[in-house]
Amino acid sequence: MADLVEAIELTRYFEMGKNQRVHAVDKVTLSIGEKEIVGLVGESGSGKSTFGKTVVGLHAKTSGTVKYRGEVLPQKYQPADFQRFATKMQMIFQDPYSSLNPRMTVGEIIAEGIRLHPELSAADIKQRVAEWLQRVGLQANHMSRYPHEFSGGQRQRIGIARALILEPEFVVCDEPISALDVSVQAQVINLLGELKDKMGLTLLFIAHDLSMVRYVSDRMAVMYLGSLVEIGKSDEVYFDPKHPYTEVLIGSNPEPDPQLERSRPSTAIQGEIPSPVNVPAGCRFANRCPKVMDRCGIETPELIALKTIDRQVACHLYS
């Protein structure tokens, strides 16, 4: 599989004044193959949303590069860049309540991107919007309604239509289902899967629901405090985690199976994710790691490929 999107040592810091900066994303290297779904998991504050937004250009890059089909994308997007890349890369946002402008009709929201294409007439645009409303399971006459008239699941469908009407190749889905009920989550996931197959989309699927990420994605990348700790095939990472953090994360994920839950010991670990302002030296997970060693506090482990299986892990246990 040729790589469609490549992030190379991508870094995004936020300045906080007084020489303080938030290390939101720190030298993350991740490539996404064509028509692949890569799941990005991690706790809140691990920088997974910032990574997604930086990849599509919603945040300027502090350093590092993003390549799209081998072409290096601008460090900071100008309006013309957005217009150029919007047809290739799109984003679906987490909160279907705050990501739709309440003062625009659904038709206006969905058509906003496509209206920038001067070759389309108003009637064409309207027809395309109507088509897309139906494709995402809504009705064409919903066009004139406002977002508040829709439920959370329906709004997420509107967000999907807005992102996909430009027929992009690459879509970042930033926690697209975490605000939805279980029964509706499945509807949205199946819709995304169906559209992915039809349009040949490549997805970066950001979520914290591990079971869902395993279900959805081909490969899984685990992020902790701004850097990647493990990358591998979703099923393999889920059932055979190598990094101690991945192990903890998967062990903490309660499964809908009472007998299993009773039989397995609690894997809760102490402590919380440290502040990304004062990033600890050495391995970032060292202060919470159950398998911590002396060198973890001094040397930062690099993401290395394991010899025996197809997996990349950043942990001294394997170096």
């Binding site: 199946n190 079971s211 059932f239």
Partner: peptide, 18 residues
Amino acid sequence: KKAMPTNDPSLQHKLLPI
């Protein structure tokens, strides 16, 4: 139950939304 992904590796079922 059927709308949720199960974590049984031997079982690759499709999510069935309500």
